[in-house]
Simulated scan of single mutants.
Amino acid sequence: MRLFHDTCPACRDGVACDAVPRRVMLGAAFGLLTAPAMAQSVASGTRSIAVRRVQTGDSFRGVYWRDGRYDRDALHRLDEVLRDPGLDEATPMDPRLFDVLHQVQRRLGSDDMWDVISAYRAPESNAARARESRRVSRVSLHMSGMALDCRLPGRDSMGIARAAADMQTGGVGLYRRDGFVHLDCGPVRRW
C-alpha cells in the first residue's frame, strides 16, 4: 500500500501540527467554514469518530482531535482505512472532513459507526467511475481526500442529509435510491 504522509495537512516536517487554527482561519477567509464550524474547530476538548470501510472491513474508532490539535497517528490510521481499495493507495484525508462527520453525528445523537462506501479515490479510479456514470464528477473532492459517501445504521439517508445541510459545513449529496449520503468539507452546496 502506498501512503503519502509527507504532505499530511496535520503535520509539518514529521512534527504534529500546532498550526491548525491558522488552517481554520485560512479556510474561513476563503469561505470554506462557517462561523459556528470555525468556532468548534478551534475549541479544545476531544473529538472522536468511528468509521468502517464497507469494501475492506477496515475500521477506526477513536479520538482524532485532542488538546487543541489533530492527532497525527489517528489521522494516519484514518488515511489507511479510507484508502482507495481498488489501487490500495492512500492519501492524507482533510481532517475537516472528520469534523463534519463528528458534528453531524452529534447533531443526530448517534454514536454508531459510519459505513463508508467511498472515500479517497485515486484519479484513475475516479475517471473509471465517471466513464460509467454521469453522477460521478470528473473533478470530485474524493480525489483530494475531502469527501466520502456514507450511511449511518438505523438512520435514513434523508435525515442525515437534512442534518448535514442545516449545519452548512460543506457539500451534501443525497443518494436516496442507493441509501447513502455524500459529505464533504468543500464549499457549502446541496444536490
Rank of each mutant, 00 (worst) to 15 (best):
G14C: 06
G57C: 06
N126M: 04
L148S: 06
A74D: 07
D111G: 14
D156K: 14
S157R: 01
L97V: 09
V81P: 01
T91D: 02
S41V: 07
E124F: 12
R52L: 05
A165E: 10
D111I: 05
L32F: 13
T7W: 11
R162L: 14
G27I: 00
L26P: 01
Q103P: 02
Q40N: 11
L82A: 12
G14F: 04
M167E: 07
M113G: 00
R61L: 12
V63D: 09
F180V: 04
R177W: 08
M25G: 06
Q168F: 07
R61Y: 03
L141Q: 04
G14H: 01
L174Y: 12
E80M: 13
P92T: 06
R72N: 00
R66C: 10
T56V: 11
V42Q: 00
A128Y: 14
R22I: 13
V81A: 10
G31Y: 13
A165Q: 12
D73C: 07
D88H: 15
C150S: 08
G173R: 03
V116R: 00
Q168L: 11
G186S: 08
V63G: 05
G31D: 09
M113L: 00
A43G: 14
V104Q: 00
D178L: 13
V42Y: 02
A164P: 01
A161C: 12
S133R: 15
D99Y: 07
A122F: 07
M113K: 00
F98Y: 09
T7S: 13
D71C: 11
R77M: 09
C150M: 13
D149I: 07
A10G: 13
Q168N: 07
V181M: 03
G179K: 03
R162H: 13
G62Q: 04
S137W: 03
D71M: 06
D88I: 10
D88L: 15
A127W: 12
P123R: 09
L183S: 02
S59C: 07
H76C: 07
A147S: 14
D88M: 13
P92D: 03
D71I: 03
D166V: 01
G31L: 08
S59I: 01
P85Q: 03
E124V: 15
P187Q: 11
R96I: 04
R22S: 10
D111A: 14
Y64G: 00
D58L: 02
L152F: 05
V20A: 08
L26V: 12
A29N: 07
E132H: 14
G179C: 08
L32D: 04
V24A: 15
M143H: 00
R131L: 15
V172P: 02
G154N: 10
V63M: 06
S110G: 11
L141R: 05
N126F: 01
R53V: 00
R107K: 12
F98V: 03
V188A: 09
L152C: 07
R131I: 10
G145F: 05
R121E: 03
F30R: 14
R138N: 08
G186H: 08
D94F: 03
G170E: 02
R53C: 02
L101W: 03
G154K: 04
C150H: 01
V42C: 05
R106Q: 15
R190F: 14
R131K: 15
T169G: 13
V42L: 09
G145Q: 06
E124C: 09
D18Y: 04
A163S: 15
D71Q: 11
V172Y: 02
G57H: 05
Q168G: 08
R121G: 01
R83G: 01
R77L: 13
L174E: 11
P85L: 06
R177M: 05
